[in-house]
């Protein structure tokens, strides 16, 4: 899958750290509910229960999503976060409950320096991904990146450790 390949590149640690180096690590506290981290790491993998659309429908909806994700990633690589955000929001309007899109949107906002927006979008990705292990990992790692950018390195590292077993 085209988008997946590009995404993995995005999530490599050196890239993310390079970005953080350029950010003032002032930190920004949040008074909202933190996702229940302990529950996630202990929870046994749950079988997918989503079965709202028939198979054809689901597969082809994602073809449109893949296209927009790829375009968004091209924009991100060209350092054009604004356009990437437009593509990702368009994709979310087509499939609003797709956690992969929300995680990527969080990343685009993170790269654009909108840390509080990025945090909430990452939380959204986590909330929507609880039925898929890979997506959940992606969402949490994005959340860790946001936390790091906010200056909360300990929490970021804690999350990364939890999900290190998923990394190939």
């Amino acid at each position: 899958m085209l988008s997946r390949k590009k995404q993995n590149k995005r999530f490599t640690v050196p890239f993310v750290f390079l970005f953080f180096a350029s950010l003032a690590l002032g930190g920004c506290s949040s008074n909202t509910v933190a996702p229940p981290i302990s529950e996630v790491s202990d929870r046994a993998p749950i079988e997918r229960t989503i079965a709202t659309e028939d198979a054809t429908n689901q597969a082809s909806t994602s073809a449109a999503t893949v296209e927009l994700l790829a375009q968004a990633n091209d924009s991100l690589e060209a350092n054009d976060q604004a356009t990437a955000i437009t593509y990702l929001e368009r994709a979310i309007r087509i499939t609003p409950r797709n956690p992969e899109l929300w995680a990527q949107l969080a990343l685009a906002h993170l790269l654009d320096g909108n840390l509080s927006v990025a945090e909430q979008h990452a939380r959204k990705a986590i909330a929507l991904s609880s039925s898929d292990e890979t997506l959940e990992q992606q969402a949490w790692l994005t959340f860790a990146d946001v936390r790091e950018a906010q200056g909360n390195r300990t929490e970021a590292q804690g999350i990364r450790r939890r999900f290190s077993r998923f990394r190939g």
């Binding site: 909202t32 509910v33 996702p35 229940p36 529950e39 604004a82 955000i85 437009t86 929001e89 979310i92 949107l105 906002h109 927006v117 909430q120 979008h121 939380r123 959204k124 986590i126 909330a127 609880s130």
Partner: peptide, 26 residues
Amino acid sequence: VIAVLDPEGQPVSHHPFELEQTIAPN
């Protein structure tokens, strides 16, 4: 409102999704 463009098609403002987690998922 999603976005506002000038007559040449250049973005003037973008109004992104605004959300904030208020209730724990469970």
